[in-house]
């Protein structure tokens, strides 16, 4: 009985500690992001890593999602002769929801894990200590450019992903179901508002922030050698993905 309560209590404390670390790193990152020196080269390197290097993965993910969306809705809408709205459904689902969430999840897997592994390895091999000893704040040097790059690149990736998804839907509609191209594009933009796209991009920026801070936090607080790095990496993906899905609901509810 006591053992059960004990482990529940310990679990609760662990969760609190986890949340505390996340917000500590987030706050310090914001604080240090306005300090000099501004490491332009490092920002660029990280932006390439998060943005450019993710394009193939994002391309495949959103392309096939757009395609399967069109496939599913076409089959369904056929039943009540509403095939003309397939373009609208694909465009709205991609921009408002699937684009940001899928891109967020894919980047959480790709970048969140690699941030945790990178910083975790630096932690256990004392490279983080060495930075600190050389009068360089690790948060400033390591975390600020990584979080910043993720924050700014995610919306761009989502923008690209939205477009690719819509093209994927068009490919299926026109190629498989012989829909009329002009009508499909008309239907795509008929109900699409600027707000649909921007709301998705704002969400994407938040997801970028969340996944990068999660990955960096996990890496930064790594202990226990190679095994610890492995644990941090897994946790970064799990926690990052969960946080994206949870915050997605609240962001959608509150903001839009």
């Amino acid at each position: 009985m006591m053992g059960w309560l004990d482990s529940l209590g310990r679990w609760f404390i662990d969760v609190l500690e986890e949340i505390g670390r996340f917000f500590n790193i987030l706050a310090q990152t914001l604080l240090w992001s306005v300090r000099r020196p501004f490491d332009f080269a490092e920002w660029l390197r990280q932006m390439v890593r998060v943005g450019y290097d993710s394009i193939p993965v994002i391309f495949l993910t959103t392309m096939f999602t757009g395609m399967v969306l069109a496939l599913q809705t076409y089959r369904g809408f056929e039943r009540f002769h509403a095939e003309g709205f397939v373009g609208s459904v694909v465009a709205l689902s991609m921009t408002r929801e699937l684009g940001p969430v899928l891109v967020g999840l894919m980047v959480a897997g790709r970048i969140g894990s690699s941030l945790a592994a990178e910083l975790g390895t630096m932690r256990v091999t004392e490279q983080v200590d060495a930075l600190y000893a050389m009068a360089t704040e690790p948060i400033h040097y390591l975390i600020v450019p990584r979080v910043g790059a993720s924050f700014f690149m995610l919306p761009l990736l989502v923008l690209v992903g939205d477009a690719i998804g819509i093209v994927g839907g068009w490919l299926v509609a026109v190629g498989l179901f012989h829909a009329n191209t002009v009508q499909y594009w008309h239907s795509t933009f008929q109900y699409l508002e600027v707000n649909d796209v921007t709301s998705g991009l704002i969400k994407a920026a938040f997801f970028g922030l969340i996944l990068a801070v999660t990955g960096c936090t996990k890496g930064f607080y790594t202990s226990g050698g190679a095994e610890g790095v492995g644990r941090s990496t897994t946790n970064a993906v799990v926690m990052g993905s969960l946080s994206i899905l949870l915050s997605d609901f609240f962001l959608t509810k509150i903001l839009f």
Binding site: M122, T125, E126, Q127, A130, A133, A135
Partner: peptide
Amino acid sequence: HIGMSFQEGALFD
């Protein structure tokens, strides 16, 4: 003003 060398080097890899 302080320089430190670490037991395992701690070089940035």
